[in-house]
Nucleic acid binder design. Structure first.
Length: 616
DNA sequence: ACGCGATGCGCC
DNA sequence: AAAGGGCGCATCGCGT
């Protein structure tokens, strides 16, 4: 086992893999040593080590990105080591440990906020304070001053700081292993997630660009609408002279408006007057309704437009979190996983000159994963059966709701029958809502929120019963979770196949996690395999493509325009193959397409020669 | 000036 | 028996 750490030039937009200054190493001898990046022997030494050892690092993906960029000869060895489960990130492992215990705010071992930076881990595991006592920390951002400077001339603190990081990482990792064993919480998917972290890091590092003209158009449009309304609202006192909302005034006006209507004032969880768009819109008050009408544009203007502006001149480098409680990933700075589908934000993202986006997503990934979970449980699954018969799952349920055969449902749908269309809509509500443990009351609001469908409680009850009848295995699925909770308030969940542990779950999260986590597992696994094809598989049609975004069941690559078709087909093939590896009993389908921008509902579009051409 | 809880809202 | 989950981000307002 070998710890690798690097000190580098500074990071900046478009510079996520900066030039290294030195590489520190530490193995079981616990005597860290250092290689100068400028030493011509360094890449060969590293190559030999990476070919042999299990490599450990804190935020390892960053260091591997640095090394790949500085020494192209290391690319293949690094990818091989990831593929052979010889790459391990202590930061990712720490997150898995937290999830396994079900911790989310404080680390009970140290009573400190739950963080995963190296200093926090040193405190928690080693009782070692990395900061404050000396000047070593001061070197953190100054290593570029030491580029090509022989080690004899380094300030002792600069050397010590660099070496300490490697040693501490080594010691922390030993402690993590001891902790997992002592608490019987071995994080079996730590290598898998380290792979995912690597693929996601590369996506963030490559970055996304925006279309300057489109961004300006959007910004202009949205700004005008918000500005106009704000001037009016300042006169009515709902917005203060400084442009900020006066929540006190807004809340009291909402209260008044609802009283006038003879309705109860909507309250939040903590008991204050709710101020959501829905509340404002239903207030019957013109000013409040005006406020509601700009809510959407305000969100675009404050959250999304500034990021799009940045992308006009520099790559936007999102940073991904390779694992959260359910097993999914998350993304920040910016969060490219929650770009609005409506309003023209997505369409501002464009591939670099001469490229197209090759994109694909899994269809009904989580439902497929749910069916596979039932099979893993040893339960016969009619959902799996329907999927294996190639049925559209929503239409299948719709046919059962209407008490007709699947073939008749297919025929009616193709004829544009209204009743079957409605039934299929109801089926979607059931399929997407109920697996997570939605009760009747919540199902009603879920239908309204997500689909604009108004259900009575009776209708929701019927729908839920029909769903349970169509998929009898789901009774066993829910029963398993209930059984866990018969003798305890919370329990420890073990994911199928990945064996990832999630501690401290109750009923609804206990229902959700198995299938959401399984879909997340094959999603991130797919990212790794796609990225590997893009970066090092010279034989692959994806070679040279660059993944730029991952959104749970969707991946987007930049690809040279004339290679789009072959890339799309290969992307689909890898995606379906990786899904199979996790869900061997379910045929999971990926749908590829080519786009000139990030369109929300792009579909596979064929040219006259039968090859896929850009959508939109 | 800054931190933080509450609230609301974007996505899958 | 009943029970959607879970991210990130911006804003407001209060407290230190």
């Amino acid at each position: 086992m070998l710890v690798i750490d690097t000190e580098t030039y500074l990071i900046g937009p478009g510079r996520i893999a900066p030039k290294p200054v030195c590489i520190q190493l530490c193995d079981e001898r616990r005597e860290p040593w250092i290689l100068l990046a400028s030493d011509p022997d360094t890449p060969d030494i590293l190559e030999a080590l990476i070919n042999e050892e299990t490599i450990v690092g804190h935020n390892l993906a960053f260091d591997m990105g640095v090394l790949c960029e500085a020494y192209p000869q290391l690319q293949t060895p690094i990818w091989r080591a990831y593929t052979e489960d010889r790459m391990l990130c202590t930061q990712v492992l720490e997150k898995l440990i937290h999830i396994a215990h079900g911790w989310d705010t404080k680390d009970p071992r140290s009573n400190l906020p739950l963080k995963t930076n190296l200093a926090s881990l040193a405190t928690t595991y080693l009782k070692h304070e990395m900061k404050g006592k000396d000047s070593a920390d001061a070197w953190r951002f100054r290593y570029r001053e030491l580029d090509s400077v022989p080690l004899e001339k380094w300030a002792p603190d600069a050397l010590r700081y660099a070496l300490d990081d490697a040693l501490i990482t080594y010691e922390v990792h030993q402690s993590q292993r001891a902790w997992m064993i002592k608490n019987n919480k071995i994080c079996m998917d730590m290598y898998q997630r380290a792979r995912g972290a690597w693929a996601l890091h590369l996506m963030g590092a490559w970055g996304l660009r925006t279309d300057p003209e489109k961004v300006d158009e959007l910004a202009q449009r949205v700004r005008n609408r918000v500005q106009g309304a704000k001037i009016t609202l300042q006169r009515t006192g709902l917005i203060k002279p400084d442009g900020k909302k006066d929540l006190k005034a807004i809340r009291s006006q909402i209260d008044r408006a609802y009283r006038i209507q003879g309705k109860d004032t909507p309250k939040t969880a903590k008991g204050s007057v709710g101020t959501s768009r829905e509340v404002l819109a239903a207030s019957g008050d013109v000013s409040l309704q005006l406020l509601a009408s700009i809510s959407n544009d305000e969100k675009l203007l404050t959250t999304y437009v500034p990021v799009l502006e940045r992308g006009k001149t520099l790559p936007v480098n999102a940073s991904y979190n390779p694992v959260v409680a359910t097993g999914r990933t998350s993304c920040r700075s910016p969060n490219v996983q929650n770009q609005p589908r409506e309003g023209g934000v997505r369409e501002c993202w464009i591939p670099r000159q001469g490229n197209v986006y090759v994109q694909a997503d899994y269809s009904i990934a989580e439902l497929c994963a749910l069916a596979q979970c039932c099979i893993y449980m040893g339960v016969e699954s009619s959902m799996a059966k329907a999927l294996n018969e190639g049925r559209d799952l929503h239409l299948d349920l719709a046919s059962k709701i209407m008490s007709i055969s699947y073939d008749d449902a297919l025929r009616l749908k193709s004829e544009g029958d209204k009743e079957i269309k409605n039934a299929r809509q109801m089926a979607k509500i059931a399929n997407f809502g109920i697996p997570g443990g939605l009760g009747v009351v919540s199902l009603v609001s879920f239908a309204k929120m997500a689909y604009g469908v108004v259900l009575t409680e009776t209708e929701a009850t019927d729908l839920r019963n029909q769903w349970l009848e169509a998929y009898p295995e789901m009774k066993a699925y829910f029963r398993y979770v209930r059984d866990q909770l018969r003798t305890q308030e919370r329990f420890e969940l073990r994911q199928w196949r990945s064996a990832r542990i999630r501690g401290n779950v109750g009923y609804t999260d206990g229902c959700n996690s198995p299938f959401q986590g399984l879909a997340a597992d094959f999603g991130i696994d797919m990212c790794f395999h796609v990225a590997r094809a893009c970066y090092i598989d010279v034989q692959s049609p994806l070679y040279g493509c660059r993944p730029v975004a991952f959104v749970h069941d969707e991946i987007i690559l930049e690809c040279e325009a004339d290679r789009g078709h072959d890339a799309a087909i290969e992307l689909q093939a890898i995606m379906e193959r990786r899904a199979r590896a996790w869900c061997p009993d379910i045929p999971i389908v990926a749908e590829p397409c080519i786009m000139t921008r990030w369109y929300k509902d792009a579909e596979t579009k064929y040219g006259s020669d039968g090859r896929i051409i850009p959508w939109g």
